[in-house]
Design a protein around this nucleic acid. Sequence first.
DNA 1: AGTCGTTATGCTTAACAAAACATAACCGGG
DNA 2: CCCGGTTATGTTTTGTTAAGCATAACGACT
Lengths: 110, 110
Amino acid sequence: MDYRFKVWLEQDGQPVLGDGLLNLLTLVRRHGSIRGAAGEMKMSYRQAWGNIKKAENRLGIKLLIKQIGGESGGGAHLTPEAEQLIRKYEDFRCEAGEAVKKSFLKYFRQ
Amino acid sequence: MDYRFKVWLEQDGQPVLGDGLLNLLTLVRRHGSIRGAAGEMKMSYRQAWGNIKKAENRLGIKLLIKQIGGESGGGAHLTPEAEQLIRKYEDFRCEAGEAVKKSFLKYFRQ
DNA sequence: AGTCGTTATGCTTAACAAAACATAACCGGG
DNA sequence: CCCGGTTATGTTTTGTTAAGCATAACGACT
């Protein structure tokens, strides 16, 4: 017997940040581009871009500062608001996960 | 800003018990039939029956004792194994939910 | 024997989500 | 002035999941 759990943030009843987007944004930070980040996740650029835009619209804040054209074709990096949000979500997600695991072991040990 | 979370049990990597089935089984207990329970959830009998059967196959135990024909056409009631399992899942689910809520308030209070 | 309400199960259809495809605009650099 | 690599976005295709439809078997009761 095993367990699984998911947790995410919502705004006005619509999802805005979960593990998928967190991972994507983290990779954008490292790669400096949406395309590079999507590629590493084996996700299409189309989907990655769409997910980010949807979250931005729902949140009402910009998550990425993007440049079209220029050296290396352009790129993207996180806004301070995005940095703060994902930091808080990471902590929340981690702590919640620990608690769920603890409860599971309490009732279904081994 | 709000949050949501889901938790469920798995066997061999396949889901066997979550909020949906818990609710369904609880209603079966009260109604004495799969059909009555499904109706109250606005779920089709077909789907309810299929979900229960899938869980039984994956768990390798019977969750319901069913009767075809007879007074009131037949019916179903929970096995002792099912009763024990849902009791444990309910406690686990409840405790986990409280913990997640607490963590959320810690990082995103108000 | 026929009705009623239930379990049991295959098959079809529809709805929705994910993936794939196709293009346009941009701009630094050769 | 073209090329390469990126953002931006509409359209189409596919695939998976949920819903719906149809039908059989069963057994108490009338």
